[in-house]
Nucleic acid binder design. Sequence first.
DNA 1: TTAATTATGTAAAGCGCTTTCGATAGGAGA
DNA 2: TCTCCTATCGAAAGCGCTTTACATAATTAA
Lengths: 334, 334
Amino acid sequence: MVTIYDIAKHSGYSIATVSKALNNKHVSDKARVKIMDAVNELHYTPNSSARTLATSKSWIIGIVFDENLGFGLAHPFFSQVIEGFKKHVELYNYDLLFVSRHMGLQEETYKHLLHRGVDGIAVIQSFGEDELRDINMTIPAVYIDRPTSEPGSVYSDNRSGSRLAVNHLADCGHKKIAHIMGDQTTYAGIQRAEGFKEAMAANGLEVRPEYLVDGGYYSQAGGREAMIRLLSLEDKPTAVYAAGDEMAIAAIRVIKESGLKVPEDISVIGFDDIKLAQHIDPPLTTIRQDKEMIGRQAAIMLLDKISHTEESGKDIRKMVPVTLVKRQSVKRIN
Amino acid sequence: MVTIYDIAKHSGYSIATVSKALNNKHVSDKARVKIMDAVNELHYTPNSSARTLATSKSWIIGIVFDENLGFGLAHPFFSQVIEGFKKHVELYNYDLLFVSRHMGLQEETYKHLLHRGVDGIAVIQSFGEDELRDINMTIPAVYIDRPTSEPGSVYSDNRSGSRLAVNHLADCGHKKIAHIMGDQTTYAGIQRAEGFKEAMAANGLEVRPEYLVDGGYYSQAGGREAMIRLLSLEDKPTAVYAAGDEMAIAAIRVIKESGLKVPEDISVIGFDDIKLAQHIDPPLTTIRQDKEMIGRQAAIMLLDKISHTEESGKDIRKMVPVTLVKRQSVKRIN
DNA sequence: TTAATTATGTAAAGCGCTTTCGATAGGAGA
DNA sequence: TCTCCTATCGAAAGCGCTTTACATAATTAA
């Protein structure tokens, strides 16, 4: 391995000067040129461990997400968020570290991140407690997809999303609207359900308890269960708003299997706008989350925290807007 | 930050002994207990930079993929491969580093990885030259989705995949079979096209030049173009085998738009088995790549290279099998 | 010409850890 | 009792880099 000493020797300057030249501190032009020549000639690359050790700055951001629930790298929503996040932070020369989880305990994960000396942490995990918090966290962090007790979180405007969905359904003449809720320990699930109730009230619509069913963790399996329950009702809804696209898709399938049609018999609207949404039959009307934007905002917020380490903006919670995308799973009725 | 010195002071032993205790070298039981007590009490976490500096072992594996073509974190195929890869390496306590690309040059990327001192590199990039190779690469690496001039690559058995596809089509009575090729600078694209020709020959079928169209980089846009070209032909094919699901999906859409039906008028078969495949109408018959397995095999191979640094098995190329999954986009004709 | 600045470069300490090699103490063997 | 091992621990060097504090050379001002 070629080190800064080699460069020093080769260029005739001391390692101190070499270091300065490499870090754009002031050295004479002559020195800079000679040093850079040596660098190129010897193919020198500084060692980041040594640098990190000396500066306590790693230029690494740790990513934590909960893989127990399948919210991993391959998750359609989170992977896009991360992508947006990455695109932004790499502009500032940060690399991303995905740490291994060793099953479970947040504390372990946090310790590991501490061990790695990351400059910041992005947590993508929509449910559960602020466990990292309790561990006396000192590393700047940002939470994605749910607010936290401490500043630094970005998430979609879930309530507005529900309002958009319900209003659209109401505009189309629907009165008997059901809601397949996302898991009620997740922030998004709670907010979407609350928003649903509010919007129903605002439209002068009744929310019947039997129309409020839990679809669990946004999976197709959960959506399936929920929709079956809904279809077993004597007085079926004419429209269902599912708190996630996967659930909506499963719901549509169940409806079709039962011999009914979407949207002729029952309208369905989802949440997320995953890629799949536009490809199913009928194309799914849904509330789009701006994943790219969520990632970017999270990145901006985290970088800000990292640089203004002293308690910058107090209570930063960034809500990113959602939009209604109309496709063909909702129909006007009279 | 609490360091090994704090533990030494607190436990009454020297840092050397503390280090040994921490690394499971032999120390007396008494010392071990006292030291561990101190570790727990002070919430000590070793600093990985310091450790890496001293041992030149980082426990980090760098991931490189080409984001220019959209093969990023959110890519349905690669993200699953990485997930499989990650699941395996984390068993051995490696973390994954996604480095920022700074646009283009492989050399930059490699230098950056060198700078980071990663223990190994996984390259996910199916086209272009073995650029990393030329840079006098010394870090163990494994290539995913294409073979390389040096040992260490894992990829699907693309030729067999084509054979599976063509045989299935032929078995169903199709004779006029077209192939929407993947980009012919990618290994997979080339192999699938070759396999197609071979299998056609093996079935005594003619491969007409006008039935061989390039779909580009596996995108829907490319598939769309290609299919339009095919439909403009006087004598249309009765079946088309697309080298990627996205292209197949686009093809189906084009066919439907033209007023024809899938599979009644034209059968379509894809390659990959992305999640979308089962949700479109009709559900897509396709060749499934075992992404999880590809990732795992790559991980196994890389870890092996890392430990047996001395040129272990010479020419390791692992081909993972593909399977035909029959759904409803292919129909028997007479 | 001389004193006062300023520009430029370097020695040395320190970041937190591992590891070699030697020191010491206690126990075994004779 | 004395010598020789063994077991256990620690001093110190070193990993590659940054940074402070200072020395020296080059300029400028007077």
